[in-house]
Computed example of a mutant assay.
Amino acid sequence: MELIWYAVFALLLTGYFALEGFDLGVGLLLPLVGRNQRGRDRMVAAMAPFVLANEVWLVAVAGTLFGVYPMLEGEVLFGLYPLVVAMLLAWIVRDAGLWFRRRADGAAWRSFWDAMITLGSLGLAFGWGMALYAAATGFGSSLLHPVGLLLGVVVTLLLAWHGWTFLAWRAPETAGITRSGRALALSGVAAALPAAAVVGGALPYLLEHSAPSSTLSVLSVMVLPFAPVMVIAQVWVWRTFRPGKGPVRTLSFF
């Protein structure tokens, strides 16, 4: 049972990077690719249908972490407290930018919230790199360790590339180039590689710190039956908003 839940946790974590990663990547690219307001509107519209479905993966990761590995909760929150708070604030700022950018007219209003989207995306992307390094070193190193900062840069660049590939797949007129679904899958794998490496190296540690078998059995009965719903919803989103299903339109709420 411990191995099954480890596989579930690994799938959720890497799936988050592969899916939510392109949302963050598009946010990072807003000031670079979206050279005018119309261009930025189209970039946000391209990712808008996927944002909420992709964020569900992070909620599932957090729930699995604290349910399956409860003894790690204190280590994570204590060792990464400043970083966790900063990332939560970045998440709030990014989502606020997505929701508020079209709540009023005016170039200054839109530009401000577009900047918040980019700032929040940068905070999340860079923060994830630092968090992965801290997890790989047992939460014993400084958050400002040079290697952790370097990994933050690497993760940020990987997610930016993933976001650019997504735009080239979903809205090629915005990216200025066309990429296939296979290229998007490849960039998704690349975006998830740092997380996959960390969780793969942590296999013995995670198995050792799993919740008791009785707890895992209860979680399996209560949680796993809902997994197909999550998968079906994700498949529906991708089939509905894939390229060729109509032009990318700016959604009123994003």
Rank of each mutant, 00 (worst) to 15 (best):
E2D: 15
L3N: 11
L3M: 11
Y6R: 04
L13M: 09
L13W: 07
Y16T: 06
A18G: 10
E20R: 04
D23A: 03
G25N: 11
G25K: 04
V26I: 11
G27V: 04
N36P: 00
D41A: 07
D41L: 02
M43E: 03
A45E: 04
A45D: 03
A46Y: 05
A46G: 07
A48I: 08
E55T: 00
L58P: 01
V59K: 04
G63H: 09
T64F: 07
L65F: 15
G67N: 09
L72F: 09
G74E: 14
G74Y: 12
G74N: 13
L80F: 12
Y81C: 06
D95Y: 09
G97S: 02
L98Y: 10
W99G: 01
W99R: 14
W109E: 03
R110Y: 01
S111V: 02
F112K: 02
F112M: 08
M116L: 14
M116E: 05
M116R: 01
L119A: 15
S121A: 14
A125M: 10
F126A: 15
G127I: 08
G127M: 08
G129V: 13
M130W: 10
S141Y: 05
S141H: 11
S142G: 13
S142M: 00
L144C: 01
H145L: 00
P146K: 01
V147Y: 06
L149G: 00
L151I: 06
L151F: 04
T156D: 09
L157T: 08
H162W: 11
W164F: 15
W164M: 12
R170Y: 00
P172S: 10
A175S: 13
T178S: 14
T178Q: 15
L186C: 02
V189P: 03
A191F: 12
A192Y: 12
A195M: 15
A195C: 10
V198K: 05
L206M: 15
P212R: 02
S214C: 00
V218I: 14
V218N: 01
V218S: 09
M222P: 00
L224Q: 03
P228K: 13
V229H: 05
M230E: 04
V237W: 06
R239Y: 07
T240E: 08
T240R: 15
F241Q: 07
F241P: 07
V248D: 03
L251D: 03
L251S: 07
